[in-house]
Amino acid sequence: MNNMFLIVTTITLLVVMALALIRAFAGPTVFDRVLAGNLFGTKVVLLIAVMGFLTGRPDFLDVALTYALINFISVIGILRFVEITRKSSPKEQS
């Protein structure tokens, strides 16, 4: 019985990730894209955890934890990069 709900959750997460990608492609500003990327990353963490339970291998949780760490650091890194680039070329501001 549990498996059915895990499958429903997996499918929802996949749909959510697809919708986040739409925002990442459409997003008018660069910050919309970073926001969608951050959202996508958090959903990947949840997806890895759920998939680990679905396949009966909870070892996947280590991967999920590492992914959560990398996701956070990459978002901060991208934002600093965007800030520095904007400062050095103020003409490109929209």
Partner: peptide
Amino acid sequence: FKLILILLFILFTSPTASHALGKAAWKSGL
């Protein structure tokens, strides 16, 4: 315990990430 660790980590980092996003957007004049 690993699941609790993941949950705590998401709860600690997500406000920081959204604050960084909002601040970067505000500083760049959006």
